[in-house]
């Protein structure tokens, strides 16, 4: 079957992409001066020792005296075996720190992704079905508002309004509440809302415009002539072809928000997730942790693009798998 072969090829390609990224990272790291070595030299000079000797000792200690290809293979092995080193700033292994961050990031990322995927296309197709009605105009206004307003700013405004003035939701994020609890839902409501607002706009617009095209297609007349009800016609004959171009927008929007805005939103709402972890690691110049977090984001992007391509091929029966 062509599809299975295509998926396998696409997965292999994704693996190659990840290898390229890891290699590029290694090259950059090898070319850049290592702050730990500088520090050792400074330390030795301050203590009256020989800076040159200290540098050599430090290089030996960190394995930097090995030939480049050996260091590259070591680097590859450790990356792909998930041995991503020690985080000086968090005093724990990098992977452990990342898993902790992911735990909090997932708690709001999963809800907003699910909400965007469910609500966006539905509202978009509804808008197309009722084009230029006040509901359509309201949806359009909401879409552009969410698209235009910076997420972190919107988050601050909402926090001020609902957290400080109205006092409906807690201002300080608490990590000691259960994941599936009302308290957790309350403290995550705003970040989820902010991110849904940011991501759903493009999804709504694309679903609306794509389905507007299919709404007037001849096959909709065929459906009507067959006796298909308007609801069924939209649910099957419009929604299904709309999903093909929409899958692209959906994945890219979710990725863009996940990789960019979630960092800012975590800082605004004080969620100790991946975004804030990265931010703090940057400030503390914790190279290993920054590297690890970057890898996580990169791999998410690679996997997202992989899923997007596969979804596109599965959804559009006209795509041939053989000539790509």
């Amino acid at each position: 079957m062509g599809l299975a072969r295509y998926v396998v090829l696409r997965v292999v390609w994704a693996a190659v992409v990840s290898l390229v990224i890891v290699t590029a990272t290694f090259v950059l790291m090898a070319a850049a001066p290592n702050p730990a070595i500088q520090e050792a030299a400074t330390q030795a000079a301050l203590e009256g020792g020989d800076p040159q000797q200290a540098v050599e000792r430090e290089r030996e200690l960190r394995g930097l005296d090995e030939p480049l290809h050996v260091r590259y293979l070591d680097f590859l092995t450790s990356i792909y075996t998930l041995e991503w080193g020690w985080s000086d700033h968090r005093s724990q292994p990098v992977t452990e720190a990342l898993v902790e961050g992911l735990y909090y990031t997932a708690q709001y990322s999963i809800p907003w992704t699910v909400l965007t995927v469910l609500i966006g296309p539905l509202v978009g197709v509804y808008s197309a079905a009722n084009m230029y009605s006040w509901r359509d105009h309201a949806a359009t206004a909401f879409a552009f508002f969410g698209y235009a307003i910076p997420n972190f700013f919107f988050g601050i405004v909402l926090l001020l309004l609902f957290g400080v003035w109205l006092d409906w939701i807690p201002v300080v994020y608490r990590t000691d509440v259960a994941v599936f609890s009302l308290e957790n839902a309350r403290q995550l409501a705003l970040p989820v809302f902010v991110l849904v607002t940011g991501s759903i706009g493009a999804v709504m617009r694309v679903s609306r415009n794509e389905s507007a095209e299919f709404r007037d297609a001849t096959f909709m007349k065929t459906a009507k002539a067959k006796g298909v009800s308007p609801f069924r016609a939209y649910a099957y004959h419009v929604m299904r072809p709309t999903l093909v171009p929409l899958s692209t927008t959906l994945v890219s929007q979710l990725l863009a928000i996940f990789l960019g805005s979630s960092l800012l939103v975590e800082v605004v709402f004080g969620i100790p997730g991946l975004g804030r972890l990265t931010f703090e690691a940057l400030v503390a110049q914790d190279t290993n942790l920054v590297l690890g977090a970057t890898f996580v984001f990169t791999f998410v992007a690679v996997i997202g693009n992989l899923l997007e391509d596969i979804a596109f091929s599965v959804l559009d029966p006209r795509i041939s798998y053989d000539d790509r």
Partner: peptide
Amino acid sequence: IRGADVAHVFQNPQDALNHCY
């Protein structure tokens, strides 16, 4: 009545069938 009693065949079969099904 549509479909059951009165059926239609349209001009351009290219567009009259839904390409996703």
